[in-house]
Design a protein around this nucleic acid. Structure first.
Lengths: 205, 205
DNA sequence: AACAATTTTAATCAATTGATTAAAATTGTT
DNA sequence: AACAATTTTAATCAATTGATTAAAATTGTT
């Protein structure tokens, strides 16, 4: 981003991110993307060769974004408890900023696992994280419940992501306004934090 | 289903359920459905008038199926604790039988909220359920944590549905086989049950 | 300024899509 | 059996889709 005017390639990529996330691969036409980018529709093929290649160019990036909260906090010098709280807060805010992301990742992986290739080494980054180490020590010392890191991460992600994934459904079912949903979501976050921390720290079994 | 041979209309509807759930509205062509049903592709329009009307004919039914576990257990004569366990078990098994359902409902509501109309009165059925009443009594008597039914239901659904929604992602990230995932899922169910019951029953606050 | 390389455009392509039509086949009723 | 109503079929439609092409415009280099 060293020039003031974005290159056509960047404009297409940014437009692709926006439209793909909104409508999914199947619901997106190459003309949608060109229009959103404000470029001639043949340019998409000039720079990216095909709709599928353009999709590939953005998918892994979006996948990384999906795990950014976890990854950023993994190696901070905070306590285990603070990290768990931090990850939940981070995911919560991310879902507000980027409401289509979770659905996009899950749906594309579900619809076309072969196309949606993941290059990002989550497992390695996780296994070698300070977080994993802190968790192991805490378990060994009997300070928290014996729970594998994969289950812990999933519980955190499930409760926040699903809350926002089902936002429209929730609003329809319970007759909520946008504001009422926000209150509901804030309350839910508190419950989820309590529930997870309570499970980990006060129920040695 | 009083005749041995299914009517074309039924065959189309069944095929529509299968294909729509697999590929979503955008990813499905009317020819896909006709082929799956084994009927001439013009028959779809003869019986349902359009792709969208056929979609509407199955969406509400699928939405109902999504909540079937909860609804079936709501008014059973079991204890609150048994019902919570029962709902988790039911959802867990449903996700195995119908792995596309959660994604379908969430994604279609997300993609096109206007098209995906919900007629099923979840709120009424919930508010007037024995479950809601049991929950209220237990809270009033101080036997469980003070948590609104909407949060409780969401926590149960989140942790099970998201587990299966992210099955492919989980298997890719952690390098799991199908069998390893099943072990992982079984273990996760136990953790989720423990966590929820523990939060409700042993942490009055 | 002259030229080559790169980028952008308008026009167009074949394939696919949701949908319609008119005729054919089947079914039910008298 | 004769007939009308219903169901099914093959053929076809216009619109949309991802992609290509050849020419035009722009940019960078000498």
């Amino acid at each position: 981003m060293k020039c003031l005017t974005k290159s056509a390639e960047d404009k297409i990529k940014e437009a692709a991110i926006k439209v793909f996330l909104e409508k999914g691969f199947d619901g997106t036409t190459t003309r949608d993307i060109a229009k959103e980018a404000g470029v001639n529709s043949a340019l998409m093929n000039y720079y990216f060769r095909s709709k599928e290649k353009l999709f590939l160019a953005i998918f892994d990036e979006m996948f990384q974004l999906f795990f950014q909260g976890v990854l950023e906090i993994f190696n901070k010098p905070d306590s285990l408890e603070d990290k768990i709280i931090g990850m939940i807060d981070y995911d919560f805010e991310s879902c507000k900023v980027n409401p289509d992301l979770t659905n996009f990742i899950i749906n594309e992986l579900h619809r076309n696992p072969e196309r949606s290739i993941i290059n990002y080494p989550i497992k390695q980054l996780c296994d070698h994280s300070l977080f994993a180490q802190q968790l192991k020590v805490s378990i060994d010392e009997g300070r928290i419940a014996n729970v594998d890191i994969r289950h812990l991460l999933l519980v955190m992600k499930s409760n926040i992501q699903f809350l926002f994934q089902t936002k429209i459904m929730t609003m329809k079912i319970w007759n909520m306004t946008e504001n009422e949903f926000n209150v509901y979501a804030d309350r839910h976050k508190i419950i989820v934090k309590d529930m997870i921390l309570n499970y980990l720290f006060s129920s040695q079994k």
